[in-house]
Design a protein around this nucleic acid. Structure first.
Lengths: 133, 133
DNA sequence: CGGAATCCGACCAGATACTG
DNA sequence: CAGTATCTGGTCGGATTCCG
């Protein structure tokens, strides 16, 4: 009696999909890139190591919480390293790993694409928005 | 007296940052890519045009709402085209534009990077998670 | 079949305040 | 200086329902 079968089928499809995602490297990476702060942090560090407060200042709009959270996940993924120097005021430096650098290279490629094609996108948008005819 | 100056400074930094974002093509593009369904739709269409229900089936975990929403924004951005065939049951086909195809190419590059380096990420994660010492 | 509208819950993200 | 903890609210995403 398929009374709530619809929901169950959805759920099952979701589970399968989820399992599929787990084994899919692309999606995991995409998950990282989809974090808006990730790209900014990586970009900021691509010119060299920075301290926590430097990052906080350079990125500006970020809250301490999000910055820490982002740095943590990137550190966990081996994208960057966290170095604590126990001086009188504690000093923490963040730097890209080789892996992180290659990711930065990828982001550069994305950026290049964006700058090349953004115009077309804008035109398409105006065309779509001015849906006069 | 700086009682609430902290909040105001945050707000101002946020405004500047926001303005910066507006003019930044990279970020606009990143916004698109950060939508988890976008990549899946583009990937699905990269092998050829598909109907709405085909996409719905192929992507599996997506709800009608999100699928439509994703397709709309992609259509608006000129990434894909929407073709309605007014037969008895309405038929709608979606296909990538040349712009969309080039985006698909970019996603392929990202995918390649992911598959190349995912192993390192996994190792880094296990090393980080097994925080024994 | 293809889609729109509504409702609602879950999660994410920010602000604030406090600690080492 | 470099975080952490908590609360809160806004947005996203899903389920449901109904229309062309």
């Amino acid at each position: 009696m398929p009374t709530m079968t619809a929901a169950q089928r959805r759920e099952q499809a979701r589970a399968e999909y989820d399992a599929f995602i787990k084994g899919c490297p692309t999606n995991q990476l995409l998950d990282r890139l989809s974090d808006k702060w990730v790209s900014l942090v990586v970009a900021a560090l691509s010119t060299g190591p920075m301290r926590y407060s430097d990052l906080s200042r350079k990125i500006a709009g970020v809250s301490p919480k999000m910055l820490t959270q982002t740095l943590r996940s990137l550190e966990r993924d081996g994208i960057l390293t966290r170095t604590v120097t126990p001086s009188v005021p504690v000093r923490v430096d963040y730097a890209l790993t080789p892996l992180g650098s290659s990711l930065a290279g990828l982001l550069t490629a994305v950026k290049a694409w964006a700058e090349t094609h953004i115009e077309e996108v804008h035109e398409a948008r105006e065309r779509y928005d001015g849906t006069t005819d």
